[in-house]
Design a protein around this nucleic acid. Structure first.
Lengths: 132, 132
DNA sequence: CGGTATCCACAGAGATACTG
DNA sequence: CAGTATCTCTGTGGATACCG
């Protein structure tokens, strides 16, 4: 049992694949922050605090947890420089790069179709007004 | 206030886009079941109970909630046939089809790289054994 | 700077029972 | 068949304080 309070289920679970593979990929990147972390590693390496500044609203703890999970899955490489004060750099691995391009496609999809989705919501809320 | 117990935040939230667009797409499909529902609508229409059987582990309530959210976003079309017993069919809209192809790419990625991820995890757990 | 260690709140999800 | 209505529980994620 390597489960601790700091690094919870996201890292612990999923060792064998007994489920649909579609679930696997989304257990991996479907949490609240992984996508934004990967996306923010697009242009080269980032330091911990840089990521913290660039990703709006993420807490220190969740950035740590997310980066550790991505590191364990071989998507992010973590490099510690033995200097004072500490310097830690994060970058995508080649594997992470392949995933990042897919995420880029999803972001593009979102950008292109936001208007469609908003229109669909307005339409739905008109058609199904006070029911539910 | 159209929020109820049955249809919670997933449907209620996200009317304007004030966040990063990357977040939007994952608020939409990043929940526990949306991806599998969309994926199971790949080959034509499905009835409620068919989906329930095909998607392992989903509860009746979560299938309803997920389908309603996808319907509201214009990703799934819901057709009710006024017969007894009731017959309701679900299918992807054209918009949903474009999203499904991206999800297909993610599933393919997952299939192709499962071994890599598993290897990375084993390696990580050896390198960072009992720490944390 | 780059983390850990705790504590805690709340939304997401499960189980169960009931219905047009 | 295709849902609703509740009740409950769990885990995710936030806040805060401290450390090498």
């Amino acid at each position: 049992m390597r489960k601790t309070a700091l690094i919870p289920a996201s890292v612990t679970r999923g060792e064998p694949q007994q489920r649909c593979l579609a679930r696997d990929v989304f257990d991996r990147i479907g949490d609240k922050w992984s996508v934004e972390v990967i996306y923010n590693l697009t242009e080269g390496t980032r330091r911990f605090t840089e990521l913290r500044r660039e990703i709006d609203g993420i807490s220190q703890r969740m950035l740590t947890v997310t980066l550790r999970a991505l590191e364990r899955d071989g998507i992010v490489r973590r490099t510690v420089f033995p200097v004072v004060p500490p310097r830690v750099e994060y970058e995508l691995t080649p594997l992470g790069e392949t995933l990042r391009s897919l995420i880029g496609a999803l972001v593009d999809w979102s950008t292109e179709h936001t208007a469609d989705v908003d229109a669909a919501r307005l339409d739905y809320d008109r058609r199904v007004p006070e029911t539910l």
